[in-house]
């Protein structure tokens, strides 16, 4: 870890301006992913801007009946919020399925959206990885890829976005709010927030240099049955092999996004009209363009079977 200077941010706009101005600057809030990566040399900031003093840690009702979640709201507090538990159970469930109690106490809403992949080649600075070192190649393709993407990847990268929370937010049509270095704010629909890797896997979001997430808004609740079903080898404290985030209405219609299968939460609104026809048909549409590796082809089957269980649960059929 290289030496870095450190400052405590005084306002979101000032933090954004400082980040754009200062070479090698990075924001730090929870730090649970950034410090992990700094210790192994994957991230090498020269300057850290500590956001923790900013008053971005509240959850407030919006005028249109939704919720605005401050960027610094900790995962634990978001999951435990009574309004979230009542109206956005999916989000609470997704958060609680992730990481550990200790990590959720630190990790923030914005930081969770910006979590970097757990691809083992990304994590090892001795190995080729286009995301970490653009132009070095992808060792995961043809290598250990059991945990990696089956869809949305490219010849350059098949990394998976590891956040559970983001998958739920994708289903909830969340909007990411930011402030840019010039002080302008913008609202980015979650669908547009994460980029697919293409030829530039190191660019993971649409955020600009210095741009700071200030919060996430959720539209007003849509009702329905909220289910987050995370599948993993270990019973807890593990990343998803596949996760299904779903809101299913009484008539069988609904919304579904998958985690663990793609470089971003994987949802296709065009496939959703097929949801009432069941898991098999819906998944065939949602994952029609899947290009799994030999090691992770099981994820396509697993996604369908998990969704089958989710739809059964939504119907109140526990078995």
């Amino acid at each position: 870890m290289k030496p870095f200077s450190y400052e405590r941010a005084t306002s979101p706009a000032a933090a954004a301006a400082a980040a754009a101005r200062t070479e090698g600057a990075k924001f730090i809030a929870g730090g649970t992913n950034l410090l992990d990566l700094m210790k192994i040399g994957v991230e090498e900031p020269m300057h850290l801007i500590d956001l923790n003093g900013l008053a971005l840690d509240t959850i407030e009702a919006t005028s249109d009946g939704g919720l605005r979640i401050g960027a610094l709201v900790r995962n634990t507090d978001l999951a435990a919020d009574q309004r979230v538990r009542r109206d956005y159970g999916l989000l609470s469930r997704a958060l609680l399925a992730g990481a550990s109690g200790q990590l959720r106490n630190k990790a923030t809403t914005a930081g969770n959206l910006l979590q970097r992949t757990r691809c083992p080649y990304f994590y090892d600075t001795n190995q080729p990885c286009n995301k970490r070192l653009p132009g070095s190649g992808c060792a995961a393709i043809g290598g250990s890829s059991r945990s990696l993407a089956v869809i949305g990847g490219s010849a350059s990268c098949i990394a998976v976005q590891p956040s559970d929370m983001a998958v739920a937010m994708r289903v909830l049509d969340a909007v990411v709010e930011t402030v840019r270095a010039d002080g302008q704010t913008r609202r980015i629909p979650i669908a547009d927030f994460h980029r697919l890797p293409g030829a530039r896997p190191h660019v993971e979001t649409v955020l600009e240099r210095g741009e700071l997430i200030t919060g996430v808004t959720l539209p007003k609740p849509v009702g329905g049955m909220h289910i987050y079903h995370k599948v993993r080898d270990r019973a807890s404290y593990a990343f998803a092999l596949v996760s299904v985030a779903a809101i299913v209405q009484k008539d069988g219609s609904g919304r579904v996004a998958l985690g663990g299968v793609a470089p971003k939460p994987w949802r296709d609104e065009a496939a959703e009209p097929y949801l009432p026809q069941g898991a098999k048909i819906f998944t065939a549409h949602l994952l029609a363009n899947a290009t799994p590796t030999g090691e992770n082809a099981f994820k396509v089957v697993l996604a369908e079977r998990t969704l089958h269980a989710v739809l059964a649960e939504a119907k109140g059929d526990a078995s």
Binding site: Y6, G31, T32, L103, N105, K106
Partner: peptide, 13 residues
């Protein structure tokens, strides 16, 4: 009052 992983946070924070 909250448990955290002390390895993943900086003392200066």
């Amino acid at each position: 009052g909250r448990r955290i992983n002390s390895c993943l946070t900086l003392a200066v924070m």
